[in-house]
Design a protein around this nucleic acid. Structure first.
Length: 218
DNA sequence: CTCTTGATCTTCT
DNA sequence: GAAGATCAAGAGC
């Protein structure tokens, strides 16, 4: 706990709230930082990726704080764009600031943010969120799950937010998507990426140090 | 806790 | 026909 504010006056009709269990501070919806514009993504994917840690991703107001991402680039053998444009990955070759959603293992959806500039075909895979907004809606979509594992993986967070192929190629700074900058500093950790078989040694996985909402410990 | 496996679709060989 | 930027459940320790 880094800050404790003054205690607000208690409204006369708030007696029901008084008997609720106190929530851990990290599960309360924190205030949102300034909205990220498309230009935020017009930089190296390795600058954008760590800057996304601590930012908040919402789809129709439901989502949470990004705690884990991975960076991919067309020169990277592990990237979907490595072998050139295809119908699936075409949006990666377009301008930055758009979503790229793909089907994973025939079952799951995963979402990326396109970065850099037209033709560079780089993107950040969003791998885990700390749920903060619309937690009941996310629980309904995911079934019975504890908060820690609600969005602790790229397929899980898409299911929780209701992301499907319909949400591919959408601008990241317009409804139904919104992104909000991190407030203050974050301690970023890096490591090798998860679940790939090519270019396995590049340390292009970025995470929020100590978070309990990661897909896997660093 | 770790390890294995099935589910199921798109892309590429 | 095989592989893949995954997940959940079940077996074993």
């Amino acid at each position: 706990m880094q800050h404790v504010g003054s205690i607000p006056p208690v409204p006369a009709d708030s007696h029901l709230k008084m008997i609720q269990k106190p929530q851990p501070a990290e599960t309360k919806a924190p205030r949102l930082g300034k909205a990220l514009k498309r230009a935020f993504f017009a930089r190296s994917v390795h600058e954008v990726a760590p800057d996304l840690i601590g930012a908040t991703l919402l789809l129709d107001g439901v989502g949470g704080i990004i705690v884990e991402v991975e960076a991919y680039h067309h020169t990277d053998p592990a990237a979907h764009s490595f072998r050139g444009p295809t119908p699936r990955n075409l949006v990666m070759f377009g301008p930055p600031g758009f979503s790229y959603v793909y089907r994973s293992y025939g079952i799951h959806w995963c979402v990326n943010f396109v970065c850099e500039k037209e033709g560079s075909a780089s993107a950040v895979l969003i791998r885990a969120l700390q749920p903060t907004h619309g937690i009941p809606a996310m629980r309904r979509r995911r079934g019975l799950h504890d908060e820690r594992t609600l969005c602790s993986g790229p397929g899980k967070l898409c299911e929780a937010l209701g992301i499907t192929i319909k949400h591919s190629e959408l601008p990241l700074d317009a409804p139904p998507i919104s992104l909000h900058a991190r407030i203050g500093d974050a301690e970023i950790v890096t490591g090798i990426r998860i679940g790939i078989t090519k270019a396995v040694d590049f340390p292009w996985r970025y995470g929020l140090k100590g978070s309990r909402f990661l897909s896997k410990a660093f």
